[in-house]
């Protein structure tokens, strides 16, 4: 895989991992023929921070993660590591990852990834809009002796 391919794959895998499971299920109701290389497995990933934000790493605590690996009938392999404990989410994300490496990439892009990306961007914009409304505008009061 070339560098650009890796960057693109990182992008869609991240998008699928962060997608609301119910939304992904709605966008991907039909699953293509596949076999499970690794059945959906629930586990934990240790999340880390850095001392002072930029220094030495330390363990912050774990998060639940579900991983899954699938093989399509054509032999293409897809992987998923997704936040939470939703096995169907992990399976769909792995299938989407596999399909994105096949001739059906454009269909998946249009039917699944584009809507997910647009909704994620809208959700983020809505939240930052609320934050922006709570930004303080300081103004200096005119002091008595200056009046």
């Amino acid at each position: 895989m070339t560098h650009t391919d890796t960057a693109a794959r990182k992008g869609w895998m991240g998008l699928l991992a962060k997608a609301p499971p119910a939304r992904l299920a709605a966008l991907m109701p039909d699953l293509p023929d596949h076999s499970l290389l690794r059945a959906p497995e629930i586990g934990a990933v240790m999340v880390r921070g850095r001392v002072g934000g930029t220094g030495a790493p330390f363990n912050l605590g774990e998060m639940t993660v579900t991983r899954c690996s699938v093989r399509l009938a054509c032999g293409t392999v897809g992987h998923a590591w997704v936040q939470g404990r939703d096995k169907a989410h992990a399976r769909r994300a792995a299938l989407a990852d596999a399909l994105m490496q096949t001739g059906r990439a454009a269909d998946v892009q249009a039917a699944v990834l584009h809507p997910l990306a647009a909704e994620a961007a809208a959700a983020r914009a809505a939240r930052s809009g609320k934050a922006a409304a709570t930004k303080v505008d300081f103004f200096t009061l005119v002091r008595g002796e200056d009046a």
Binding site: G43, M46, R48, R50, P57, R124, A131
Partner: peptide, 30 residues
């Protein structure tokens, strides 16, 4: 959590790139 297999350790989170809901400083006004 003791029943969960540890799959991996993540890369340290980048709090500098946080999508902030709240951010205040008591040392600098502007």
């Amino acid at each position: 959590r003791t029943t969960l297999p540890r799959l991996a350790a993540a890369n340290p989170v980048d709090t500098g790139a946080m999508a902030v809901d709240r951010r205040v400083s008591a040392t600098f006004k502007d």
